[in-house]
């Protein structure tokens, strides 16, 4: 603990290297496998990481986006390409909606002193508790029979927005509290109406908070399987649903499915490297008081 002795012993560095290998290893293995042909996967003499890579798996998966026709693909199965587009649509729209609506609500709660922060954190906590599996039955029933939203984008987007709202409101509140009220008063003096104050003054200031909230919302919408599986139809399936559908087949083509998994994993991995600090803040927010 002593501050001067910064020379750590080698065992310490060995531990750190081991930890990094352990946490990245499975992901690296998936990446490596996604560049392997199925023959190589089943050939025990081909090592896990050092082999001649091929992009054939990615060509198979993304065949309907390619401008050329890969010769090894006899029949182009558009399922995954379509699912990728669906996932993007659902993820982006629900993130946009959640942020807009959540931001407005958070602003009202802070500036007009509605409910206390305590009530909002309590709701957030309660929402964190509800497992998606619990929402499965009622959401399926209501969306199908009452709202008529089954098999549409709107249905999936609606439930993701609702699931993410409490958390987004809660995290944005803590950013809005820090916006100096004088700034808003000055804008109002100049004749701005409440909506202008909100969109032109407050929003630009809380951008870091919006970024954190956006990452969390998009990640949940992008990764979620259970509700998407119950609500989506043939043409609105998202990527996680197609992955689960394809692994129930008896003969798994590991290279292709790893390429699919990798494509699903890439956006969250990118976010992690770009904004790990905000992610950690959001992740630890429930336990360490903010």
């Amino acid at each position: 603990m002593s501050a001067q002795s910064e020379k750590q012993n080698p065992a310490f560095y060995a531990l750190i290297v081991a930890l990094v290998v352990m946490s990245v290893g499975p992901i690296a293995l998936m990446l490596a496998t996604s560049f392997k042909t199925n023959v190589d996967v089943y050939d025990a003499s081909v090592p896990a990481f050092f082999f001649s890579p091929t992009i054939k798996n990615y060509e198979t998966v993304l065949c309907n986006f390619l401008w050329y026709e890969p010769e090894h693909v006899d029949y182009c199965d558009p399922t995954f390409g379509r699912a990728l587009v669906n996932s993007l649509i659902v993820g982006l729209i629900s993130t946009g909606l959640t942020l807009t609506i959540g931001c407005m609500a958070a602003y009202a709660l802070v500036r007009f002193k509605f409910m206390g922060r305590g009530a909002v954190s309590m709701t957030t906590l309660l929402m964190r508790m509800v497992p998606p599996a619990v929402l499965l039955v009622p959401v399926f029933g209501i969306w199908t029979f009452q709202y008529g939203l089954d098999q549409t984008y709107a249905g999936i987007i609606l439930i993701y927005t609702a699931m993410n709202l409490p958390f987004v409101i809660w995290i944005l509140q803590s950013f809005i509290v820090q916006v100096p009220i004088q700034l808003e008063e000055a804008a109002r003096m100049d004749g701005a109406n409440p909506f202008q104050v909100f969109f032109l003054v407050v929003l630009p200031i809380i951008q870091p908070g919006l970024a954190a909230a956006a990452i969390f919302t998009f990640r949940i919408a992008w990764n979620e399987f259970l509700l998407a599986n119950a609500l989506s139809g043939r043409s609105t399936r998202t990527v996680p649903v197609t992955i689960v559908n394809s692994i129930t087949e008896y003969d798994i083509n590991w290279g292709v499915i790893m390429a699919t998994g990798m494509l699903l994993a890439i956006p969250p991995i990118l976010f992690t490297f770009v904004a790990s600090k905000q992610i950690i803040t959001g992740m630890t927010a429930g336990a360490v008081k903010g």
């Binding site: 750190i16 930890l19 990094v20 946490s23 990245v24 499975p26 992901i27 293995l29 998936m30 496998t33 990640r219 992008w222 990764n223 399987f225 996680p240 992955i243 689960v244 692994i247 590991w254 499915i257 790893m258 998994g261 699903l264 994993a265 969250p268 991995i269 976010f271 992690t272 490297f273 790990s276 600090k277 992610i279 950690i280 992740m283």
Partner: peptide, 24 residues
Amino acid sequence: AVLRTVFILPMMIAPIVVGLMWRY
């Protein structure tokens, strides 16, 4: 900071994908 970034990777990736790579 780098270490922490690496450590949150498993939590950020879709659970479906986590299942996939462990199944492999």
